[in-house]
């Protein structure tokens, strides 16, 4: 294990605990870790986008074109097309100068238009047509009965779908039978939201488990575990105690 990896392991433990110190209360150590995280993320993204995106897709072809002879360039006129994304990319920076800030809307419009166009096609085919098709089920089931594929579950699912759709039918006041069905639709949706929330809780807990594993479990990347974590706890606690004493010194009667 290299020195850089060892230092990285200790720093990871320290920053994890510094971030977790927010659970106690907002403090300068947490702020420091947060700012470092934001800075490192921005720097990482800048480097990745420059060398993995801008350089191979735009700058390298343009740079290569500048060094070719005129005959080669005439034979491959598509080289000139790279000037269009370059111009659009530069226009994005126009918003930094107020007199020409409006020009930054052009590349933004192109991006929004392109993504909206492609998204509509994808959503229409995959989310609308096929999902509607799959909601038209054979209520008897298609094969050996399972937890999902059995007459009761399929009928319940279809009933819930109809009730939830009726809740979103606004052309008639939700009273009487329509109101009852719409209310049942709300209950189905609440169960769905509860399921989503349960998944969210599990996801957040999984992240906590991941950090705890990285701190406490001995692995090839963290052969000294749990010492970095234990030292980190002592250091973070000590720094927070010092900070608390600084912002609210103990009164004369206290030791």
């Amino acid at each position: 294990m290299s020195t850089a990896e060892i230092v990285g392991t200790w720093l990871a433990a320290f920053f994890t605990l510094a971030i977790l110190s927010f659970l106690y209360k907002d403090n300068p150590l947490y702020k420091f870790a947060e700012h470092v995280f934001v800075g490192v993320s921005a720097g990482y993204q800048l480097v990745r986008q420059t060398f993995d995106v801008a350089w191979p897709n735009l700058l390298q072809p343009l740079w290569g074109g500048l060094h070719r002879d005129v005959d080669t360039l005439k034979a491959h006129p598509q080289w000139a097309f790279y000037s269009i994304p370059l111009a659009f990319g530069l226009l994005m920076f126009a918003r930094l100068w107020k007199p020409i800030a409006h020009l930054s809307r052009w590349p933004m419009s192109y991006i929004v238009g392109a993504f909206a166009g492609t998204s509509i096609i994808g959503a229409a085919s995959a989310d609308l047509v096929i999902q509607v098709q799959s909601s038209m089920v054979n209520l008897r089931g298609t094969g050996p009965w399972t937890l999902i594929d059995n007459p009761f579950s399929l009928a319940l699912s279809t009933f819930g779908l109809v009730c939830a759709l009726i809740y979103f039918f606004f052309s008639k006041e939700h009273k009487g039978a329509l109101g009852v069905v719409a209310r049942i639709g709300v209950y189905f949706m609440m169960v769905s939201f509860g399921g989503s929330f349960g998944f969210t809780v599990m996801g957040r807990l999984s992240l906590a488990v991941g950090r705890a594993q990285s701190l406490l479990v001995r692995t090839p990347l963290n052969p000294h575990a749990p010492w970095p974590a234990l030292v980190g706890v002592v250091v973070v606690t000590a720094l927070i105690v010092i900070w608390e004493r600084k912002i609210s010194p103990p009164s004369a009667g206290e030791g």
Binding site: A126, Q131, S134
Partner: peptide, 15 residues
């Protein structure tokens, strides 16, 4: 886990 709740619909439709 957060995303899986939405993707179950795609699994149900065999997408």
């Amino acid at each position: 886990a957060v995303q899986a709740a939405d993707m179950i619909a795609y699994y149900g439709s065999r997408q």
